[in-house]
């Protein structure tokens, strides 16, 4: 129950206002979900370093969680380069070259992981796009692409970690925002769990992220993974996925969840409603397209 947004600046220019663009787009569709707001942002990356974000809370428990995390970093051979507490989150940059999936399951037992990646950082918390910006300084964020999400909590609680975007637990740099519901969730999840994957939440969006990341880790291109997802997932869904270099979408056969896109030479922007796209171009009528039912596509930033 929510609104989604995604943007990718096509040219490999890291110095774009991605944070501000996503805030504007989400503010445009905040009516779709006033409970919480989240961003998946792709910034500059440094070889050999990974960025990690955790939900640690704001009280004494935060210090304990950070202490546990630092121990796990040491145990796993990750060298801490930089870290800080921001709002209810803890951000750490480490040098790490081992098995990322194993490492991520290990840190997950120390604190709630929001994202791990070379360039991905997920920021999500209770409140509107502007509230989250106030707490986490999103509008200064610069990068080539990102996703955003506004949420109306229905079946689960209003908690920062229950918000979107979801990171594909165990897979570097893969994030998802999703509007809809996957009705064969448990069946799909058990299938993946039998193969050793762990899930951090009971949210169906995390399942889509892990499903796609698993395919990609087998060398299947994102676009092909999106194609199979439409047949493998039951339910109503429109979702956006992002990796270090790409964004993509998929929409179910029933087309019950809205999605609209605008593309020009400079960028591709996709959102639940055109009103969000128009926030990027005030006063201008856009040549938009509504993706057909059962469709999918991807866009890469040029290198």
């Amino acid at each position: 129950m929510c609104g989604i947004a995604g943007i990718l600046f096509k040219h490999m220019d890291i110095d774009r206002d991605t944070g501000k663009a996503l805030i504007d787009m989400l503010d445009g569709c905040q009516h779709r979900g006033p409970d919480s707001t989240g961003f998946a942002l792709y910034g500059d990356d440094h070889p050999g370093e990974i960025k990690m974000r955790f939900y640690v809370g704001t009280g004494n428990e935060a210090g304990d969680a950070i202490g546990r995390l630092r121990e796990v970093f040491a145990e796993q051979g990750a060298e801490l380069v930089d870290d800080e507490r921001i709002g209810s989150a803890y951000r750490a940059v480490v040098k790490f070259s081992g098995d990322l999936q194993k490492f991520s399951y290990a840190v997950e037992h120390a604190a709630k992981v929001m994202s791990i990646g070379e360039s991905l950082e997920i920021v999500k918390d209770i409140g509107t796009a502007h509230d989250v910006d106030d707490g986490y300084d999103i509008h200064h964020f610069r990068g080539t692409h990102g996703l955003g999400h506004v949420r109306l909590a229905t079946e689960s609680d209003v908690k920062p970690e229950a918000g979107h975007p979801f990171w594909a637990t165990g897979f570097s740099d893969v994030a998802i925002v999703h509007n809809g519901q996957i009705t064969n969730y448990w069946k799909m999840r058990r299938r993946l769990e039998r193969r050793g994957f762990e899930f951090v939440t009971d949210n169906d969006s995390e399942l889509i992220a892990v499903y796609l990341a698993d395919k990609m880790s087998q060398g299947i291109p994102l676009k092909e993974a999106l194609r199979t997802s439409i047949d493998d997932m039951d339910g109503t869904f429109s979702f956006l996925v992002s990796t270090k270099d790409e964004i993509g979408y998929a929409k179910d056969h029933l087309a019950a969840k809205p999605m609209i896109m605008f593309e020009n030479d400079d960028l591709i922007a996709i959102a639940s409603e055109e009103v969000s796209l128009n926030r990027l171009f005030p006063g201008k009528a856009l040549d938009t397209r509504e993706p057909p039912p059962g469709s999918y596509n991807t866009w890469s930033r040029s290198t």
Binding site: M1, C2, A256
Partner: peptide
């Protein structure tokens, strides 16, 4: 009205 998100627009 296919979800709470559409419903809010309908009420409005």
């Amino acid at each position: 009205i296919l979800g709470a998100d559409d419903l809010v627009i309908k009420i409005e």
